[in-house]
Write a protein that binds this DNA or RNA. Structure first.
Lengths: 139, 139
DNA sequence: AAGCTAAGTGCAATATTATTGCATTTATCT
DNA sequence: AGATAAATGCAATAATATTGCACTTAGCTT
């Protein structure tokens, strides 16, 4: 929910400006990875305008608050749909329709931490991305 | 080993050209994510020159053969050190020294496939990246 | 409700990264 | 060694990203 992101912006001392709301709305609506210029394009089609510099800065901020995420492959941005978690981002991406779905799995985190520890590595952040076919496209 | 990558190039019908060897050597030597221009810089320091277009094309090819991988975060390229596996790339990256280490974990794949299946998603590729501290930097 | 002020945005300029078509070179096969 | 398809370099251009500064606005304060 955009409303929830706005709340978090406020509690962190950031303003809930019109441009920020617009970017959040676009990401929430499209649910696919979008580049800064993609976002600008979507807005233009709605008769709105944001300078690309502004979009870059907003995405930086959202990512720093874990409200958005820059996708592993492709590099587009998506809105995080789960409670923001520092340093753990997991997504499934449909290679057909491009739809993304965020997920979390505590067991997976534990298993990964353990695996890393066994190799002398001290894990702080987990990123993972599965690509494949979503239920709609797989049949 | 660069030699092994060259063998794979041959078996796939690609030439083992000087530029390709150079890029493979740089990636193997540095063991950190490098952008195309980073690679050009490293080569320049060794008195070699490759056009950036060439480097882009070589990296595209290497990635398509799973001999290299474009990192999830940061976007740099690394040489894959394990047997090339279609669609499964896992790395640990030290956030201190930048060193990367590829790994594989069959159990993790299974667990991830199962998790996805339970959510109606049919997984084909897995990417994951842990960032944290390697054994040298963690103490 | 109007005014204040720090935070945020837009703009212009510039830097960095990536792509394309074509002429030239080179690895591999005969 | 020579033929030839594949690969590279070059020049031009496109796309993406960053910076400093002037102007605007959200959310206080009264």
């Amino acid at each position: 929910m955009v409303q929830e992101s706005i709340r978090i912006l406020h509690t962190q001392g950031y303003k809930a400006t019109e441009p920020r709301k617009l970017v959040l709305e676009v990401l929430e609506e499209i649910e696919k990875p979008l580049s800064p210029y993609d976002i600008q394009e979507v807005l233009r089609a709605k008769g709105k305008y944001l300078n690309h510099v502004t979009i870059y800065r907003i995405l930086d901020l959202l990512c720093s608050l874990n409200l958005a995420h820059k996708m592993l492959s492709g590099g587009g941005f998506v809105k995080c749909s789960l409670d923001p978690v520092e340093g753990c981002h997991r997504f499934m991406v449909c290679q057909d329709c491009g739809a993304i779905q965020e997920f979390a799995d505590e067991g997976l985190c534990q298993r990964e931490n353990e695996f890393a520890r066994n190799h002398g590595f001290h894990t702080e952040h987990h990123l993972s991305e599965f690509s494949g076919l979503c239920s709609r496209c797989h049949k």
